[in-house]
């Protein structure tokens, strides 16, 4: 499924083809096991950097932009609480200044360092 979705992107972005192929291969690994795990995949920028061997943060940003625009992946945000629990949000604008940590049952102030961009595969 994802090989078909990624093919036009690989064709249209020859400079990024190598990185995109590596991601295709990574996804194909899960597809070949039946695909049940695909909806559960959650990649962060560091993991994507290693999978695609992006080389630099700037190149990673280009690759991620291609993948998001091409509806291969979708970004959401996790606010990582002091207890370790993660609270999901769709955008930075949705994140309040203060959130309640469900693991500690106490409020804490959300700082930039608490926010983790995370990507899931677009399956619908």
């Amino acid at each position: 499924m994802f090989a078909e979705k990624l093919s036009p992107l690989i064709r249209n972005h020859p400079d990024e083809a190598e990185g995109l192929r590596r991601l295709a291969s990574f996804i194909q690994g899960y597809e070949s096991q039946g695909g049940e795990a695909l909806p559960r995949i959650r990649l962060n920028p560091n993991r994507m950097f290693d999978i695609m061997q992006a080389g630099t943060s700037a190149h990673l940003a280009i690759l991620i932009n291609i993948l998001v625009t091409g509806q291969i992946i979708k970004r959401f945000l996790i606010v990582r609480c002091p207890s370790g629990e993660g609270l999901p949000f769709q955008s930075y604008g949705d994140i309040p200044e203060i959130v309640r940590d469900p693991g500690m049952d106490a409020e804490f102030e959300v700082l930039a360092a608490n926010v983790e961009p995370t990507y899931r595969l677009v399956l619908d």
Binding site: A37, R40, I41, R42, L43, N44, R47, I78, G84, G86, T118
Partner: peptide, 10 residues
């Protein structure tokens, strides 16, 4: 550690 499904372990 972190796995591909976002679960984390320390």
């Amino acid at each position: 550690a972190r796995n591909e499904f976002g679960a984390q372990m320390q």
